[in-house]
Design a protein around this nucleic acid. Sequence first.
DNA 1: CAGCATCCTGTGCGATACTG
DNA 2: CAGTATCGCACAGGATGCTG
Lengths: 119, 119
Amino acid sequence: MKHQSNAICLCPLDGVIDTIGKKWGLLIINEIGNHGKLRYNELMSELKGISPSTLASMLKDLEKEDLIQKEVFREIPPRVEYSLSSRGRELREAIIPLLKWATKKGNYKVHCTCSLVKI
Amino acid sequence: MKHQSNAICLCPLDGVIDTIGKKWGLLIINEIGNHGKLRYNELMSELKGISPSTLASMLKDLEKEDLIQKEVFREIPPRVEYSLSSRGRELREAIIPLLKWATKKGNYKVHCTCSLVKI
DNA sequence: CAGCATCCTGTGCGATACTG
DNA sequence: CAGTATCGCACAGGATGCTG
């Protein structure tokens, strides 16, 4: 049929773009994804530079978007573990092409030592 | 070797994330991509709601990131056409998996009538 | 430990008016 | 037509201190 050639619509991104477009959005998702589970203070350490208030609000946001899951252990001292939801895991996969693109020749600013591992 | 299992590094996105993460970043790139070439005022019409100052600054930004190209015709009245660079075209392809993901069941907020055409 | 409350700054972005 | 200049607001997000 080919009724609209190759036009692309970005509407599906409407809601999530506000979340994952933020400075720490993808960083948090990916960090959790890399570790499986992470606690609040572990995230604070891994994400160098983030403030507690920002992290807290981001985590709420991500949970509301059903990208991460929160598990609370009623202990003393309290323990809370964050992990990716299935939707979050899929998102993490979905951005790999974007990473591949960013890593290509055009992008001259790759300065970190880590590279895309096992894609 | 498998030295870090399936860890993913987001560093490659460092520069561009500031551009494409912005409210109008992907929208502009996609709109230009859908049309091939677009003029300033055409973009103003297509991107309902954007202000001239915002559009101007975004276009500069996108050009600096080598995502779009600007062609100036010295005529009266002046004519300027924007098109995607090869890098911009590749980016547009690279976000398709992201769109597919956003369109899936998890995302209950798809309200627009357009859908992913011919992916 | 896992946050919340408060304050403060930078800036993304809209509105409007003006110019080459 | 293709922008620039100016103003103003909302909000992301950093810093710090406090709490259950």
